[in-house]
C-alpha cells in the first residue's frame, strides 16, 4: 500500500479533496437513522482492512497537508499547544506510543531505532530525521508532546488522572470543534464538557468518566463524534471564529453540496505507562455532502439524522442556520428505502 499524499490546503483557496478511496474509507458516524448522545465506546483493537480503524494511528492521503496546516496555525498562535509542567512525562509516554505504533504499522514511512535511551527517528513523508535522548527534553527542538503531535494527524489532549477525575492538562489543538485549549487547560472532565447541552442530564459524562478512570494499558478504546463545517477548514477554533464565522453564511442551494462538510472525529483513548495519564487523540475527517451521497446508504441516513435532530443539538453542532438548505439538498437522495445496520457502505 502506497499512500499518495495530497498537496492541498485547508484555508484560503481550500483545495482539500478526498480521492474515491478516501470517500469509501470515510468514518461515517451514524450506525442507525437517528442520533443521540451516547458513550458508544468500543475497543480500539484494529478494524476492517483499509478503514481508519485498522491502524493504531491512521495515516491517510491528507497527512502531509494537515501537518503543514498545523504548522501555519501554530506559527500564528503558539498557545494552541500547551502542557502544564507536570505533564512532560505523559508527553514522553505519548511520543513513545506514537513512534512505536507508526514505525510498526507503517514501516515504509516511519522508522524508530532505540539503543537504550538513545533514539533515532525517521519520518519519511515529512522528511524528518532526529536523534535524541528519551526523557531529556533538551535534546528535542521542542517539548515531547509538541514534537510528536506536529507529526501526528488530529488534535491531542493528555489527561492527568487524580482525585477520581480526569484533568485536561496538556494538548495540541489546531483542528478543534469550537473549544479553546488555552481556556480549558487545567479543567476537569465535567468542567471542560460544561458547555455541552443535554449530555449532562443524560448522565453520559458520569458513565464515560467511570469507564475512562478504569482504562487499562494495552487496551485502548475509541468512539466517533461529529459536527458540521462549512468549507474543509481544520482551524475552526473559537480564537479565529471572527475570521471563519462569515463563511458559515455563504452556504446556498447552488453550493451546499460542495461547501458543506460532515466533520467526524475518531476519538481514541490510551492509558499511558509511566505517567498513568490518558492520551486522547481526536482525529478529524472531512467529507463534503456531494461526496457523501455517492454512497447511497449514507445519503439516505444522513438526511434522516439531520432532519430529526433536536434543535438544541443542531444549534450546538453549529449548523442550525444552514439546516433547511442542507435538508433540501439531501432529500432527493433519500428514497425512503430501509438502510442496513452499521456504518460501512453496502
Amino acid at each position: 500500500m502506497t499512500i499518495q499524499f495530497h498537496d492541498e490546503t485547508f484555508r484560503d483557496d481550500y483545495t482539500f479533496h478526498n480521492s474515491p478511496e478516501g470517500i469509501r474509507r470515510f468514518p461515517f458516524p451514524f450506525d442507525q437513522d437517528s442520533y443521540m448522545y451516547s458513550v458508544n465506546l468500543e475497543p480500539h483493537a484494529g478494524g476492517k482492512a483499509g478503514s481508519p480503524f485498522e491502524k493504531r494511528f491512521d495515516v491517510d492521503e491528507h497527512y502531509v497537508a494537515e501537518m503543514r496546516d498545523r504548522a501555519i496555525t501554530l506559527a500564528e498562535d503558539p498557545l494552541r499547544c500547551q502542557s502544564l509542567p507536570h505533564m512532560e512525562l505523559a508527553g514522553w509516554d505519548f511520543l513513545e506510543l506514537v513512534m512505536v505504533s507508526k514505525s510498526e504499522d507503517y514501516p515504509e514511512l516511519f522508522m524508530l531505532n532505540r539503543d537504550g535511551d538513545r533514539w533515532h527517528w525517521i519520518n519519511r513523508p515529512l522528511g524528518i530525521e532526529q536523534r535524541f535522548t528519551f526523557l531529556d527534553a533538551t535534546t528535542l527542538p521542542c517539548g515531547p508532546m509538541e514534537y510528536i503531535t506536529r507529526q501526528t494527524q488530529g488534535d491531542h489532549a493528555l489527561l492527568d488522572q487524580r482525585d477520581g477525575n480526569l484533568w485536561m492538562d496538556a494538548g495540541m489543538v489546531t483542528s478543534q470543534a469550537d473549544w479553546s485549549l488555552d481556556f480549558d487547560i487545567g479543567m476537569n472532565f465535567f468542567e471542560w464538557h460544561a458547555p455541552v447541552p443535554k449530555a449532562h442530564e443524560l448522565g453520559v459524562f458520569q458513565r464515560a468518566l467511570k469507564f475512562l478512570l478504569n482504562l487499562q494499558q494495552g487496551a485502548p478504546s475509541r468512539r466517533l463524534n461529529w459536527t458540521m463545517t462549512v468549507n474543509p477548514r481544520l482551524d475552526t477554533s473559537p480564537e479565529n471564529y471572527h475570521k471563519w464565522g462569515p463563511e458559515k453564511r455563504t452556504v446556498a442551494p447552488g453550493n451546499v453540496g460542495a461547501k458543506q462538510y460532515l466533520r467526524v472525529e475518531l476519538q481514541t483513548l490510551w492509558r499511558l505507562p509511566r505517567s498513568n495519564a490518558i492520551a486522547f487523540p481526536i482525529r478529524c475527517y472531512l467529507c463534503s455532502l456531494e461526496d457523501l451521497v455517492t454512497v447511497p446508504k449514507w445519503g439516505r441516513r444522513l438526511h434522516r439524522v439531520l432532519r430529526d435532530l433536536p434543535d438544541e443539538l443542531a444549534e450546538y453542532k453549529g449548523f442550525a442556520v444552514n439546516r433547511p438548505v442542507i435538508l433540501d439538498y439531501l432529500a432527493p437522495f433519500d428514497d425512503g428505502a430501509p438502510t442496513s445496520p452499521g456504518i460501512f457502505p453496502d
Binding site: D160, Q216, G218, A219, N276
Partner: peptide, 12 residues
C-alpha cells in the same frame, strides 16, 4: 495481569 495504578503520585 497488566499493571493498574490506583495509588499514583500526584505529579503536580
Amino acid at each position: 495481569s497488566a499493571p493498574v495504578n490506583l495509588f499514583s503520585l500526584d505529579l503536580r
